[in-house]
Lab assay of single mutants.
Amino acid sequence: TYTFKVDNKDQAKKAAKWAKKLGLSFQIEKHGDTFKITVQ
């Protein structure tokens, strides 16, 4: 499981695209202005 934080929606979208490309499941949680992405 890999967790990282991004500062904006664009970065969150890029991370989601990357995870989908690799066939991984992911969750994006919004914490105020940051997004926490968990990829597994």
Rank of each mutant, 00 (worst) to 15 (best):
T1W: 12
T1G: 11
T1S: 14
T1R: 11
Y2M: 09
T3W: 13
T3G: 03
T3P: 02
F4D: 01
F4T: 02
F4L: 04
K5N: 14
K5I: 15
K5Y: 15
V6D: 01
D7N: 13
D7W: 10
D7P: 09
N8F: 04
N8H: 05
N8Q: 04
K9P: 09
K9Q: 09
K9N: 06
K9T: 07
D10S: 14
D10T: 14
D10W: 15
D10C: 11
D10K: 14
Q11K: 12
Q11P: 01
Q11H: 08
Q11R: 07
A12V: 11
A12E: 01
A12W: 03
A12L: 12
A12S: 03
A12Y: 04
K13E: 10
K13T: 08
K13H: 08
K13Y: 09
K14R: 13
K14N: 07
K14A: 13
A15G: 02
A15I: 15
A16G: 06
A16I: 14
A16F: 09
K17F: 08
K17P: 00
K17Q: 13
W18K: 05
W18L: 05
A19W: 03
A19R: 00
A19H: 02
K20C: 07
K20E: 09
K20F: 07
K21H: 08
K21V: 06
K21I: 06
K21R: 10
K21W: 08
L22M: 13
L22E: 05
L22G: 03
L22C: 15
L22Q: 10
G23F: 03
G23V: 02
G23A: 03
G23D: 03
G23K: 06
G23Q: 04
G23Y: 03
L24I: 05
L24T: 02
L24D: 01
S25F: 11
S25Q: 11
S25P: 07
S25C: 08
S25M: 09
F26I: 14
F26G: 01
Q27C: 11
I28F: 04
I28T: 02
I28L: 06
E29W: 07
E29R: 07
E29V: 11
K30T: 07
K30I: 09
K30S: 08
H31L: 13
H31F: 12
H31Q: 14
H31M: 14
H31T: 14
H31I: 15
G32T: 02
G32F: 05
G32I: 03
D33E: 11
D33V: 06
D33L: 08
D33R: 07
D33K: 10
T34W: 14
T34K: 14
T34H: 15
T34Y: 15
T34N: 10
F35G: 00
F35K: 01
F35P: 00
F35Q: 01
F35D: 00
F35W: 14
K36G: 03
K36W: 15
K36M: 15
K36Y: 15
K36A: 11
I37R: 00
I37P: 00
I37Y: 01
I37G: 00
I37H: 00
I37W: 01
T38A: 04
T38L: 05
V39P: 00
V39C: 03
V39D: 00
V39S: 01
V39W: 04
Q40S: 14
Q40R: 12
Q40F: 15
Q40G: 13
Q40I: 12
